[in-house]
Structure formats: structure tokens, C-alpha cells
Computed example of a mutant assay.
Amino acid sequence: MAVTAKMVKDLREQTGAGMMDCKKALSETNGDMEAAVEYLRKNGQAKAEKKANRIAAEGLVDVVAEGNTAAIVEVNSETDFVANNDKFKAFVKDVANTALKTSATDIDGFMADKWIADPSKTVKEAQDEEIAVIGEKLSIRRFRKLTADNGVIVSYIHGGGRIGVILSAECPNPTDDVKEALHNVAMQIAALNPKYIRDSDVDQDFIDHETEIIKAQIENDEKESKKPEKVKNGIVKGRLNKELKEVCLMDQVYVKAEDGKQSVAKYLDQVAKAAGTDLKIKEFVRFETGEGLEKRNENFAEEVAKQMQ
């Protein structure tokens, strides 16, 4: 029986499988729709569903840039073995390139968008097909885009994709020295994981939360709890200021500072002055693979043993 475009379309709508998978399923089952659905469940979709409750906390972060726009993505796998696979790396690169072009603002919208390597598929369909090929759960976890309208975008990948950073800066004259300085700052972000650019960006909820913790620490300390209230307030202020210097990028000590004291803000001011330009960091995004996810507590030998049972 000849397979028509309408049959492929109907099967795609019914199963959510990719176009080529649907065409193959219909060919293999001589156009029998029910048999084609069963074929897809056995050979593609069922694999993705079966693995949906597994933990995928390994994987890669990747970055792509074009002009003054950059995109960063995190794609998770179950094992670092797959994360180091060239096919998986190519898939993650396609995810990043798709993210660079998408107009979606959240992960659900992104998963429903067109796959850049084959616009006949959605991102979700491409992910499910990759799961069927690779044989373990994969998850496109998150993405972000940054654009520098009046400046420059820089990026940095650490540890072969374990950590990624994109950074946008406002700069009317981004010289090579300025770009190098921003690259150094991106490396700093990867290493020290600041939460904010400057102290004026810190939200009140963070300050209130940290203040509460510091006060609790004081009350639980036998010596500090007996100090006068004025002294306790001074301790709270001092510790809070110290913490803000750690979480605010511009207040952090620049890791390459020769004197071990120069802040990131003073380093960038120095570079900008030498280049004869203004320079202001506008935004940054830092992704770390598996950040906040539970990881499997299994080793490779145990995994192999399970599969042999």
C-alpha cells in the first residue's frame, strides 16, 4: 500500500513521532495505522517514555554566538559516558543553534519550536529520536539568550562543557584588550559563581534571608550570644558585607590580580581607561551541568550488571 503525506501527517499528530519515523513505520506495516502506532511505541516513543523517570544529571553545557547575540543551553544525560560521545555533543550543538534562533521565552515554548537541523520536526521530537538512538534518558533542561545592542558579547566554556558562561557588556569601542578583559571576567564567573553583578542588584529577600541566618548563628554561639545588642548588629553588618563581596561580581577580588586585592570593578575600570572607552557589564548567565539535580549513586560496573540480569 502506498504511503501518502496525509497518512504520515495523521500518524505524527497521533503519536508525536518524527516525520521520517512515521513514514518508516507506515512502510513497515503496509499502511496499517494501528500497527504503525505499535511499531513506533516499540521502536522510538516507548523508549523515551520508559526512560522518563530516570535521573539525567550528567550532560553538557554549550554556547553559540552570532553577532551581538549568544545562546547558552544545558542538555542532560544519565551518564558521563554519553556526555562525552561525539553524537551527543553534535546534538547539544544543534540545541544551542536552535536556541540562538528561537523566539521562545520558556522551555515549553522552545520544545515546541522547529528543530534547526530539520524544520519538519519539533525540538521535542528531535530529543525523543535522540533518546531512541542513544538508549538513555536525555533532557533539554534550560536555555537563555543575551543580546548586546551597544556593545559586545563574550562566552566561556570550562571543563569541556561542565560550566558555561555568556556575558553582555555595554561598550562603544570594544577593543581586543576590552574583549580579553571580558573573557577573563567570564572565566571568573565560571570559577566563583557570583549571583549578582553589583550590590545594587541584590534583592531584599536575599538580604533578609542571609541576615536571619547570621543572627541565628550569633544566638547559637555561646560567646557571641552574650554580647550587647549593638555589638551583635555590628557583627551582622560585617558578615553580611563580607558575603555580598563574595556574591557580587564587581566586588569580588579579581582572580588574576597581581596584588591579590584588586576588585573586578577596578580591573575593568583600568582596562576601559587604557582603551579610552566606557565599559559596563549588563548581564551574565552561568550554567553548570546538573546544578541542583540529584545524581545517580551507581557505578558503571553496577549498571552493566543490571543490564545483564
Rank of each mutant, 00 (worst) to 15 (best):
R239A: 12
G67E: 00
S200T: 14
T211N: 09
G135R: 07
Y196P: 11
Q262A: 05
D80Y: 01
T277L: 00
S200F: 10
I189S: 01
K6Q: 13
D149S: 14
E130R: 15
V123I: 02
G109N: 01
E28R: 12
V82K: 00
A186S: 12
I134V: 13
E291P: 04
G109R: 02
L240N: 03
N97S: 07
N68K: 14
P172L: 03
M20N: 13
V64A: 06
E38T: 12
Q127A: 15
I107E: 01
G109T: 04
Q127W: 14
E13G: 06
N233G: 15
N184W: 05
I107Q: 04
C171L: 05
E219Y: 13
T289C: 08
S263R: 11
S225D: 09
L240R: 01
N97K: 07
A36M: 09
E13P: 06
S263M: 06
R286F: 02
I189E: 00
E222C: 10
V92G: 04
A52Y: 11
E38Y: 14
V231Y: 11
E58M: 14
V73R: 07
K261P: 10
K24W: 09
P174Y: 00
G238V: 08
Q309E: 14
G292T: 06
L293T: 05
D10A: 09
D32L: 05
N173E: 03
A112R: 11
M19F: 15
D199T: 15
I116G: 00
T175F: 00
E210K: 10
Y254I: 14
L138T: 12
